[in-house]
Design a binder for these strands. Structure first.
Lengths: 353, 353
DNA sequence: TTGTATGCGTTATCAA
DNA sequence: TTGATAACGCATACAA
């Protein structure tokens, strides 16, 4: 059916190797030869057979991106950024949804699909401390986040502790004192939940304030629904915060919703801040103050690091750890006037780390 | 480095063919032989080389999904559903972002990446009438939406006209008369914009009402920002609607935002309905009444149809056209009491088509 | 029920 | 600057 290099070679009256050279931009080819080959390619509508090339070179040009789920806006936007960054490097992205399930995360590391790809950008949720050995993989990998560290694997992460501390400090500066936290994972130390809570505690300590543990609301999965539920439980338990730090934007939006259903005025009675800076937050009502963790930068850095690893296959460099910059985006959920001036994006205040 | 079938065969003391048979589940193998082979596979930690298999079989087990962009929640959720449906069929999904650009959409149809995949689920935005010939492709494809029709290609679409008509009728039944539309593409006939506007016009005609053209707000890309802008333009032009039909949820959320920035009460002064039923809409404030176009069903159907085509390669069946069911999800942006009872999802009304 | 031999379409090695 | 030829790892006639 489709034309092969052979066909092109025959038509152009050259050897198959010459066709290959032309296709791959090998420089030492007589202009007339190249022209003849290109004409033949054009005429036969020839396209390289990627499968054959893959077999021969051992590379596929595909990288995998493993995230919990695309229906969470943060990961959808992350995937968007990763795909664009990969495009810039001539790479294609295969997205794996793990659902945050341990089994599926393990499959990503060792499953058959692994062989379809040259490398992996992995955002784990279930794997954690104790699983370091599983990261001893023999293919290029970059890990997103701080759940697991292993000396031989590259990491790209955000300043979770610092950013959460800044977010909390910001609320304190607004005069808020009873700051609830939504999305806590009790006992966790290494994940986003643990680190962000740590930042919160630090900021409270910095201000000389005691942490009221009844203000900490649990939520396993960080969805809109769980944020709303966690907020509801706190309120039902009689807790009366004057601010809420939701550990991600999805939950923050759920919190906004729950508070408003109950007639609580935001930000007058309760100020709300989220984490992630998803686009959705600039259009909520009120618009959502949040921490911008540098998603773009994270995606770009991860892809570039991975591409380097893929290219330099053999060479075992030292593993690197990169932290993206963060900033606080002030909007209506913490300062009424920040949203009053018109369209979002215009009146927003940005406080850089 | 990695073990091959050869290695396994040698270790198990059988031929390479036998190993292949075991791996591919060929039934006529003596139990003892199979056991020996499996043991060898285990010992060598053998995994098939997908590239080689692809080359040999001409199949990759990958299907492509081409959408405008993942950061639009509808497409992120669609991708989520498609990936899950594909998993169920043992297929992997490669996502292409076209950005709605004609050039990139063409690339999806003919680019080199095409050869990485067995088929394509394509949601075009730029391609349209006049491009039918481009759909004369020689690989399995399923098209989402109604922008282009071609007799030889499968389509999975939603009841755009009918659903839009039902949405408008619903607003009319609420007693609204000056219903603005946001997201209009002037002159368009075949795309979602054209079809949904058509449904609107039909409903107005059904009710014996004249359409006030000044109520139609344009918006090229259907983002939150463009929805807000379109609404702002209408209001700035002095238009005073008592309801807004935003042609998708993203714009509806922008509309909600813009109205609230201007102090308009929803739904008392202006009722708002969207289209898509993205998760985000159940947590906005007020929660968003919308049309559920049957995303799950669309994804599942598309994957199944594509899988059939891929399997039945040669056999040229008749092209099919499938319409998903729709329903109207009533929430707070049109009926104040729909959102008042507590958590979203509980008090929602659902009107089925 | 199992083995042998051939080729899928490329790229890489080497020689010319 | 170009050509002949050998892999890459697997699946599949065909034979046994």
């Amino acid at each position: 059916m489709a034309a092969t290099m052979h066909d092109v070679a025959k038509l152009a009256g050259v050897s198959i190797k010459t066709v290959s050279n032309v296709v791959n931009g090998y420089p030492y080819i007589r202009e007339s030869t190249r022209a003849r080959v290109l004409a033949a390619i054009e005429e036969l509508d020839y396209q390289v057979n990627v499968a054959a090339r893959n077999l021969r070179t051992g590379r596929t040009g595909i990288i995998a991106l493993a995230v919990p789920e695309l229906s969470l806006p943060y990961f959808a936007e992350l995937a968007d950024s990763v795909i664009q960054a990969a495009d810039a490097q001539g790479l294609t992205v295969l997205i794996e949804q793990t659902g945050g399930q341990r089994e599926r995360e393990l499959e990503v590391l060792s499953g058959a699909r692994r062989h379809l790809t040259d490398g992996l950008i992995f955002s784990p949720l279930a794997l954690g401390p104790g699983d370091e050995d599983l990261l001893e993989v023999d293919f290029p990998m970059v890990i997103l986040g701080e759940r697991i560290f292993h000396s031989s694997v590259d990491h790209v992460t955000m300043h979770n502790v610092e950013a959460a501390r800044a977010a909390t400090r910001y609320l304190l500066e607004l005069g808020r004192r009873r700051i609830a936290v939504v999305g806590v994972h009790p006992g966790e130390v290494v994940g986003s939940a643990g680190l962000r809570l740590k930042g919160y505690r630090q900021a409270m300590a910095d201000a000389g304030l005691e942490v009221d543990e009844s203000l900490l609301g649990e939520a396993g999965l960080w969805h809109r629904a769980t944020g709303a539920q966690s907020m509801a439980r706190l309120l039902d338990a009689g807790v009366r915060p004057d601010a809420v730090f939701a550990l991600n934007d999805a939950m923050a939006l759920g919190v906004l919703h729950e508070l408003q259903v109950r007639g609580v005025r935001i930000p007058e009675e309760v100020a709300v801040i989220g984490f992630d800076a998803v686009d959705e937050g600039s259009y909520s009502n009120p618009s959502l103050t949040t921490v911008d963790p540098g998603r773009e930068q994270i995606a770009r850095t991860a892809v570039e690091m991975l591409a380097e690893r893929v290219a330099g296959k053999g060479a075992p460099h030292e593993a690197r750890r990169v932290y993206a910059d963060f900033s606080i985006v002030v909007r209506g959920s913490t300062q009424a006037d920040a949203a009053a001036h018109g369209r979002p994006g215009l009146a927003e205040g940005v406080r850089t780390a």
